[in-house]
Every structure is written in C-alpha cells, then in structure tokens.
C-alpha cells in the first residue's frame, strides 16, 4: 500500500466542474446558432467562427505572453464569450470589427481584471456595446434573412422590429401603421425577422435555456424575474395606452431580450450570488430594459440594462444576503 492520503473533510466531491458548466452553456447556445445559420446562411457561421477563434487566440496570447502563466483556454469560457459576442452582432459584420470586439471583450473586459471569475462586467456585452458606440452604422445595418430576401429582392438590408418601432414613433406614426412593417409575433418567436444573428429566435433560446435550467447550470431567478418584469411593465403601459405603447408579447419576443435573460443576465461571474440578489438583479434589468426601449434613444436596451446591473452586483451582494439559519426567533 502506498502512502495514505490525508486531507480535511469532506472527502467526496460532486460531479459538476467548471468545464462542464461552460460546455453546457455552449451546448445550450447551439439551437440558436443553428437557427441563425438557417436564416442568414454561411455568414452567420463565418461570424461565429471568427468571433470564437479570435477570442480563443487573444486569451491564449494574453495568458502565454503577457501573464506568462498557465494557459487555460480549454475551460470554454472564451468560447462562450466569442459565441455570445457573435450572437449580438449583425451577420454581415466585417472581420476586423469582430476582431476589435474580441480584443475589447477578452483583453479589456476579462483579462485585465484577472481572467475568469474576476471580471465585473459581462465581457461579451462590453465588446458589443463598445462596437455599438464605435461603429454605429455597421452595428445597426441588419442583412435580410433568406425569406425577407425572397419577399424584397431589391433590398439588401433592413431594420429590427424594435428599430422600426422606434423610428416610426419618432416620425409620429400610429402603432397600427408601424406594425404593418413588423412581422407577426409568431414569426418573431420563431426567428423570421431581422436582427443580430443569435437573438432572432426566441424559441431556440428558450430551448437552450430550459436545458440549462434542467442541468441546474442556471436557476430560474434571473431569467424569470427579468422576463416577468419586462412583461408586467410593458403590459401596464400597454393597458394605459395601446395606441402609444406596443404589446408586452411583442416586447418579449423581439430584440435581444430572450438571449439576454437566459444567457447574458445569468452569467455567473457578474451576477449576484444569493437568490434574493438574483431576483433584484432580474427586476433591475427588466425595468432598465423597458425604460430604454420605451423612452430611450436606442431601440434596444438589454445590453445596457445588464451592464448597469452588473455594476450594481457587488452592492446587491452586500445588501441582499441569504437569510441565516436561526436568525429569526420562533415565537
């Protein structure tokens, strides 16, 4: 018998590892990727592969040459960042813009804080917002998907449904007139509309999200409260004035809300730890998203909402602690 091993208890360990969590998320993102390839064709695949490739390469280079430490790009976190970044950009984005986005995401938003687990903001969203403010034209020119191309053979690009809504409201058009240009809610749910490549199909994202919930990688707290808040808030507005405000169902299925709620707002690193905190986080995201969508200058507010709540996370962690056992005296 070789030397006995000795360690403090516990001597057993659960199955789940960081790698498993990361690869589960990647697996859960695949339906959305498949849908975007179906609608946008090869371009969607090109953007995704480029983004993942750049992210891996940048993380590898930083770990190897700047930090001169262990290289651990196989943990899957850089792949997720790459995929999520790709999901948040139009499919016709030139490669060099994608590269800049990846450098910002990995280099600035993640590695400069110390790598996995130490970044305060969601890296993919930082990259996305950086690109949005730096290259507004490229980032908001959405290619038509294959069905739209058939319907409008002479057009090359279109707008997202939220964009159409915002533009229309600015011009003072009535809601019913605007919605003539917007696909039906069912089409939006399935993904047959313009937008960033990963966010178009609410259905595919929900499938991925349910998989993560079943695998217990994420909990219901953030996605549920986020969606419910947006639904309730926009619902109240809709009830007040249906001519001025779009229906809550439309808000749920359009834009990046689903992607944000299931994949970005649930990023473990940048969200609160306790159940109470997560509910506050989801609530905040929902309120900010609705405010930006309804009254803000940008048509979409998911990225900003999540980033703002990311900034509030340390505070939420301090303020909303789990209830300690035995804290309340029994009568």
């Amino acid at each position: 018998m070789s030397l006995l091993k000795v360690s403090p208890s516990p001597h057993a360990h659960g199955e789940m590892t960081v790698k498993q969590i990361m690869y589960s998320v990647i697996f859960a993102l695949l339906p959305a990727l498949a849908v975007s390839i179906f609608f946008f064709g090869f371009d969607a695949l090109r953007v995704s592969i480029l983004a993942v490739g750049f992210c891996l390469a940048i993380e590898w280079a930083i770990q190897k040459f700047l930090l001169k430490g262990d290289v651990c790009i196989t943990d899957g976190s850089a792949i997720i960042t790459g995929l999520l970044l790709a999901f948040n950009v139009p499919s016709n984005l030139p490669w060099w813009i994608i590269m800049i986005g990846c450098i910002v995401s990995i280099g600035i938003a993640k590695m400069s804080f110390g790598g996995l687990g130490k970044n305060p903001f969601n890296p993919a969203l930082i990259g996305r917002v950086f690109l949005l403010v730096s290259f507004p034209a490229d980032m908001t020119t959405w290619p038509l998907n294959r069905f739209e191309q058939l319907a409008h053979p002479d057009a090359v690009t279109g707008a997202t449904s939220l964009g159409i809504l915002k533009e229309g409201l600015k011009k003072g058009e009535s809601l019913s007139a605007i919605f003539q240009h917007i696909p039906s809610n069912i089409q939006l749910f399935l993904g047959n509309h313009g937008g960033s490549l990963g966010e178009i199909s609410a259905l595919a994202i929900i499938i991925g999200g349910l998989f993560l919930l079943l695998r217990k990688v994420i909990t219901w707290h953030i996605p549920f409260t986020y969606l419910a808040t947006v639904f309730t808030f926009t619902g109240i507005l809709f009830l007040i004035n249906p001519e001025r405000f779009a229906s809550p169902i439309f808000h749920l299925v359009s834009g990046g809300l689903m992607l944000g709620a299931f994949f970005m707002a649930t990023d473990m690193v940048t969200t609160p730890m306790s159940a109470k905190g997560m509910i506050i986080f989801g609530l905040g995201c929902g309120v900010i998203t609705t405010i930006i969508r309804v009254w803000g200058a940008y048509p979409e507010g998911v990225s900003f909402a999540i980033l703002i709540m990311n900034a509030a996370t340390p505070l939420i962690n301090l303020g909303f602690k789990p209830k300690k056992f035995g804290e309340v005296r029994n009568g």
Binding site: V18, I21, G115, G117, T219, V269, M273, S274, K324, G326
Partner: peptide, 16 residues
Amino acid sequence: ESCIRCGKCVSICCMG
C-alpha cells in the same frame, strides 16, 4: 480552479 462566483455554495449552505 478560480472562483467563478456561481453561487452554488450560497444556495446549498443549510445555515444560510
């Protein structure tokens, strides 16, 4: 490995 702040330890702690 480094902490990824997943919060699993918080959710399973029976003493809160």
